[in-house]
């Protein structure tokens, strides 16, 4: 285990709300993490605290083994691209990139220029006058070209169209393959990033709901469709996280993967299996959780997965 970030019992309380509630997790070196969860789940707060832009109420955060707060040795190795980053009013993108070049020791000007071309960023237009997408693109360029050892992207795609988002994903992957580093990507476009990420951290209502490899997460649940009675027999004793019916046909999503023999037996009864995408799984898990279960299914299932 070679973790670049360690978080222990981190709690962040605002005046009227708890943004993070006793959260603990590790981030491994040189992997792409998907920090997933609904709006307001605590993703931005977590990233702000990890980059020392915000302070924890209690708990401990270690980045490269040290507290990042007011720690230039640590901060100079991080880059945090905020969804709502503010720039000086009179600055234009050229100014912003010139500044980034000053502060990120691994900055790659060639890459920056390619990306500026890709996203067609108008360098001399005041940042205030950029479209939402162009503003996001400025952040994406800084995040990628900085090549920081740990890069945080907080919903970096707002206002970017599908083409521009694909450019971002492709560029991210290609550059990461060549220059491996740790990347935390927060997103709620889960389908779009699910193949990109190596690990999933799912946050919901200030708590970690899932901390799995993306591969394991994809096989965490199974969907079975068929005659209602047969489906009920098949899922008997399993933890069902979602169920819907149309006439006599029922579709049920349950946790776990049946053995090949069980699958064969179920198939013989006319039941059909479908994979559960990461997005479906996450939607189901968060829905189920907000429905008021006190124990998270990911936790209760952990034992059987390992």
């Amino acid at each position: 285990m070679n973790s670049v970030i360690q978080v222990r019992n981190l709690t962040k309380r605002y005046k009227d709300a708890v943004a993070l509630d006793d959260v603990s997790f590790d981030i491994e070196k040189d992997a792409i993490y998907g920090l997933l969860g609904r709006n307001g789940a605590g993703k931005t707060t977590a990233m702000s605290i990890l980059t020392a832009q915000n302070l924890p109420t209690s708990g401990e955060v270690r980045v490269f083994g040290e507290n990042p707060y007011e720690n230039a040795r640590v901060l100079s190795r991080l880059c945090f691209v905020r969804e709502s980053q503010k720039y000086p009013d009179d600055a234009n993108p050229r100014h912003a990139f010139a500044a980034a070049r000053l502060f990120f020791p691994r900055w790659d000007q060639g890459l920056a220029e390619e990306l500026i071309d890709d996203f067609q960023i108008p360098l001399k237009r005041t940042i205030k006058k950029l479209s939402r997408g162009q503003l996001s693109a400025v952040g994406v360029v800084i995040g990628l070209a900085s090549r920081a050892e740990v890069t945080f992207f907080d919903e970096p795609y707002l206002g970017l169209d599908a083409v521009a988002r694909q450019i971002f994903y492709d560029r991210l992957l290609a550059d990461y393959a060549e220059f491996p580093r740790t990347i935390l990507l927060s997103s709620h476009l889960i389908d779009e990033v699910s193949n990109l990420i190596e690990r999933v951290l799912l946050i919901d209502a200030g708590r970690i709901l899932m901390d799995e490899s993306a591969e394991d997460a994809r096989s965490l649940a199974t969907n079975v469709v068929g005659d209602a009675a047969a489906v009920d027999r098949a899922v008997n004793g399993r933890e069902v996280i979602h169920r819907e019916s149309l006439g006599r046909v029922t579709s049920v999503t349950f946790l776990g993967r049946p053995e090949a023999s069980e699958r064969a037996a179920m198939a013989a009864q006319g039941l059909e299996f479908a994979p559960v995408s990461l997005q479906q799984l996450i939607v189901r898990l968060t829905q189920q959780r907000s429905a008021g279960r006190d124990r998270s299914p990911a936790e209760s299932q952990e034992g059987s997965l390992r």
Binding site: D170, A177, I197, E198, A214
Partner: peptide, 18 residues
């Protein structure tokens, strides 16, 4: 290579390596 596969299929290089 692993990286070529990752970029071509748009998947994480660790998955391609596996």
């Amino acid at each position: 290579s692993t990286n070529e596969l990752a970029v071509f299929h748009r998947i994480n290089p660790a998955t391609a390596a596996k």
